[in-house]
Design a protein around this nucleic acid. Structure first.
Lengths: 226, 226
DNA sequence: ACGTGTGAAGTCTTTCACAGCG
DNA sequence: CGCTGTGAAAGACTTCACACGT
């Protein structure tokens, strides 16, 4: 199995997978790179190039079999199996994660929820019991869990990450608004809604003129004062 | 003001901003590109290059003033002002968004929450009343709101996006696990935790040998059965 | 004809390496 | 001296354009 596929490609594959699942559900058998591209918001060449890193899955003049491509993407992304996950942090963010059903639906099973706060420990949470974070390391090692979700305040994110890494975690979904440092063999995916918003506002004009949406020359003579 | 700064640079600026805020809170006055890079998880050259798109903010031999850089980033990212936001979808995801205090703390005010489901309309939600989505378009236009958060099922994401765009929305934070098509002058930032997880599993070995973490020669003779 | 797979070209982004300033 | 800002080089990624198979 080849290494050194661009990371940006790996991030697009789940998007293709998502589009294909939707197509399969609508009964579509075959899809062209053009159609898949439109559905995934990229170019057709990009779809073909991305897939070509892994093999030749299409039929010339025809397109790609939706079922075949789904199965290849499952294999490439290691989605043929389910995955155990631990969640660190049972605050409002962590609780929201336990209530997000799509993770379970896609084979990501939250096996433990840890917190540090005695008021939260032993409370029930969507079928799970919040456990003391002091149990975390031993349980992760024993159960061979390799994926963690961090949902703690930024001030404790690094120490949590350190302990996760020591316990054998190799992939982290980080909701803490902080950059965490990990060894090269551990992957981190950061999700920070505030940072996302702040990159969006860059593209907005700073001052809006309220109640005055487009000042086209046609409306020059119209007074639009509220 | 210049256009055509790489998008990847724009996505890093909020991360620098976040690091700098933390430094300011710890009383740090001056920071080198090296230190900021470490804190943000990038290289020092990258920090300097990114900032150089916007001006010369550093002092040679010294570094960057934390306060100055924060203020420049606020200006660049249009964070000098607060922003009004609408949230579409009052399901569990939408409710989690209203309970996430960091948006408000960073000046993003959710002014309306819309839903389509009569059972949710008029319920209270963290100080907001869920409104009928049929009111959405008129309110967004009237109030000149330009940022929306989509938290609806994927099947309705596109039609919601279309209506948001017609109403004047220019930036969308999309939590729906679906790609939405918008005109060029509208920005979309997608957040899909399942897609994030699926890109992480690519890097994990597909089969784990439970209860046997590293088979180093040193521990060959030790029985590690629980 | 149609649509894939891919060399080659083009563009974008990162990194090197160092001049220059405080 | 230390650290910024930046040309130039390198590297990564995307797009063009078309040969080829069906």
């Amino acid at each position: 199995m080849q290494r050194d596929i661009p990371e940006v490609v790996i991030k697009r594959l789940p998007i293709y997978y998502r589009s294909l699942q939707q197509m399969a559900q609508m009964g579509k058998d075959v899809v062209s790179s053009q159609e898949l591209a439109k559905s995934a918001g990229v170019t057709a060449t990009q779809v073909r190039r991305d897939l070509s890193y892994f093999g030749e899955f299409g039929k010339q003049g025809k397109g790609y079999s939706v079922e075949l491509l789904l199965s290849e993407l499952r294999r490439i992304l290691n989605l043929d199996r389910d995955w155990d996950v631990v969640l660190v942090g049972a605050g409002s963010l962590g609780r929201a994660v336990t209530r997000y059903p799509r993770l379970e639906q896609h084979g990501f099973h939250i096996r433990h929820v840890y917190d540090h706060n005695p008021n939260r420990i032993n409370t029930r949470l969507n079928g799970l019991v919040v456990e003391d974070v002091s149990l975390m390391s031993e349980q992760i090692s024993r159960e061979g869990i390799r994926i963690a979700i961090i949902a703690v305040p930024p001030s404790s994110a690094q120490e949590v990450a350190d302990e996760l890494v020591r316990s054998g975690i190799k992939a982290i979904l980080n909701y803490a608004p902080a950059t965490i440092q990990v060894p090269d063999d551990v992957r981190v995916y950061d999700i920070d809604p505030v940072a996302a918003m702040q990159s969006l506002t860059y593209y907005l004009e700073p001052y809006e003129s309220r109640r005055k949406r487009k000042l086209s020359s046609a409306s020059d003579r119209i007074d639009i004062t509220s």
